[in-house]
């Protein structure tokens, strides 16, 4: 499977708001931990190794 970089979020603005909200009042350390848990949860949900590898490469490339 290919990493989907086309619009796929059902409610993009809602998602983004919730993402920022997730970090409200957290220290940078706490935020880093929350981000890590989020990545792990999402990665497991996606499951497909190939997609995950592509996403990691894309993220690293900036």
């Amino acid at each position: 499977m290919m990493l989907n970089t086309e619009p796929n979020l059902a409610a993009p603005d809602d998602f983004y708001e919730a993402l920022i909200e997730m970090h409200r009042d957290l220290t940078p350390e706490e935020s880093a931990a929350v981000n890590a848990r989020l990545i792990l949860l999402l990665a497991n949900h996606i499951g497909d190794t190939e997609v995950l590898m592509q996403a990691m490469q894309r993220a690293r490339a900036g």
């Binding site: 880093a32 931990a33 890590a36 990545i39 792990l40």
Partner: peptide, 23 residues
Amino acid sequence: QMSRVFRDAVLDLARDCGFARRL
């Protein structure tokens, strides 16, 4: 530092998430 952050995140989730126990 980030490797430690992910390690601890895995351990946190492992309390109640089966997938994290596999990690």
